[in-house]
Design a protein around this nucleic acid. Sequence first.
DNA 1: TATGAATGAGCATTCATTCAT
DNA 2: AATGAATGAATGCTCATTCAT
Lengths: 186, 186, 186, 186
Amino acid sequence: MKKPGVKERIVETASDLFYNQGYNQTGINQIIDEAGVAKSSMYQHFRSKEDVAVAYLVERHSVWMENLEKSVSSKKEAKDKVVGIFDYLTEWLTDVNYRGCGWQNIITDLPSNHTKIMNQAIFHKTELLRWVQNQLILDGSYTNKKSKDLGGEVMVLIEGAIILSEIHKHSWPIKAAKKTCKKILI
Amino acid sequence: MKKPGVKERIVETASDLFYNQGYNQTGINQIIDEAGVAKSSMYQHFRSKEDVAVAYLVERHSVWMENLEKSVSSKKEAKDKVVGIFDYLTEWLTDVNYRGCGWQNIITDLPSNHTKIMNQAIFHKTELLRWVQNQLILDGSYTNKKSKDLGGEVMVLIEGAIILSEIHKHSWPIKAAKKTCKKILI
Amino acid sequence: MKKPGVKERIVETASDLFYNQGYNQTGINQIIDEAGVAKSSMYQHFRSKEDVAVAYLVERHSVWMENLEKSVSSKKEAKDKVVGIFDYLTEWLTDVNYRGCGWQNIITDLPSNHTKIMNQAIFHKTELLRWVQNQLILDGSYTNKKSKDLGGEVMVLIEGAIILSEIHKHSWPIKAAKKTCKKILI
Amino acid sequence: MKKPGVKERIVETASDLFYNQGYNQTGINQIIDEAGVAKSSMYQHFRSKEDVAVAYLVERHSVWMENLEKSVSSKKEAKDKVVGIFDYLTEWLTDVNYRGCGWQNIITDLPSNHTKIMNQAIFHKTELLRWVQNQLILDGSYTNKKSKDLGGEVMVLIEGAIILSEIHKHSWPIKAAKKTCKKILI
DNA sequence: TATGAATGAGCATTCATTCAT
DNA sequence: AATGAATGAATGCTCATTCAT
């Protein structure tokens, strides 16, 4: 085995590039150059550029959810964990200079046949919605129905905060979202 | 002038394509083909593809704001106009099968030097923010400070509703956003 | 106009290469290099490699049929013109060192979706068949029905002579075919 | 030996693919995938793709000649066996939907250094020629010289019938060839 | 003002082959 | 005898832009 971890290096490199430059702005050539891998090696591990992006999104999802859990772990009440999401957003998004959300960013200008990527975005957002709804159910302050409805409202706030902070390169939308969030959770 | 309205036809065609297919998915050739214009004619009117996109966004802005005004014109109270935004979103986004927001969509996967387009997005979202804040001030229920803060919160809801409905191809995020909006405007 | 006759130069170059090296052995890059043309210029004139090949075959067809006419023009009797085909084959095929028939060669190892090329081969062979049948009708020695049947038999001889001389790199199959041809035309 | 008959399976699979799709249209990967063999295993048995093709042609030759013998075995007179070739062609070529002759097909679009394949084609066609000539000698109706000459003429008919039926996807050239064959064998 | 012709750099993908184990 | 991993070179094609007329 000449070069160990080829696949890992491809995903790692592609993740950086896809997230920071965009999917369409990142060519296969740049990925393999920066990963130090032969083009054919890449195509032995991934059928297509889309599949590399899917691997990136799959891995990001685990990391992102773990980081969320970690970030809100100090809060005792489940409701506070939900409000805590917006502190997590602040940490994350200031860190990446308001580059926004990898899933949002990749689906908005995508070749129409790249359904696997689209599915990843739907999956990620649905998982996050479930997480929020779960927290609200666990909190015990709301009926199940109410928890599910509130979960949807919180999701809107999260997504709005992310995209708006990306546009304005500023944290005010996250703060505004947090404020609203507190209001709707009483 | 052989072909009158060349410039207009380019912008019109490009608008359809950029919005519906995406910026990166739309090539110069498709634009000039569908507009029935020679390539060099296009480059006489626009320095670059980016400039065509800027023209598209500039025009869209006027139309979008006008449509918003029209849509909420029946409401008497300014506060109701703000809540009415979400009915406008519903009309618009179901109409375009949840294709999302032209400004959001175009900035998320853009060559890094396309600052003119980025500026258009900032401009559009700022104008909308001002509009919302203005309505809240006009309503008279809030202090100026409060109106400005609430305006930011409403913007988050708007943006979240748009992107989330684009992801899920469903109207529930808009409904959720409207619900939240009503709550925060008491 | 910087480089005049770009299209012509492409077809000319591609013709040489397709015929002498084979369709699959000839890449787009070699064609444009030897023609001294930019790749995009080529794709402005031809949608695809297949289309270049079609242009090659279309042009070859005219030339080939004209050459045939010229070669047999000295014969007075139509029947002798038909037999004269084999002298034409000899001239041609020794000239190209028994490289065989461009149409035969290109259809035998073709991507399955290259139907335009296949159609060119069918067209060329059908036109040649019609020519032979016409000569036999003009000759007056045979009924129309007989002329048509004999035309088919002559075609088999032509095709067999070409492919077999290509395999053996030798003229004997052409001579044998001529011999047979004389027999069946009385 | 984990997988017995690896070599056989490769040749078998490659034969199908080379014959039905063409040499250039068949990649090494498809062969090993469909044969269920590791790539390196293949290269242990064969130096190159060309060598696989040679093995395919070598095996085909035995089968093809055997099938010919079988097909004409019912005929008593040697001359009838020769005419019977065209019935054999009909059976075979309708069976394979006029896919033509594996040797003809493979030599017409080949990298120029693939001489081993070319030699196989020459060998196969020469063997067939010898077989025909032998039958005519055995028949006793002709001098040795005449038999050899007639053999060449029959070969032309065979080859013409095969390639022409491949082009037109029709059996008429085989019928025409048979008719001619009967004429030249008195 | 308008255009048809041309361009270089880049795209994603596939090829037959070789290597270390 | 058999393999999984890796490779460099080439494939056909598209991009936004420019130039001479």
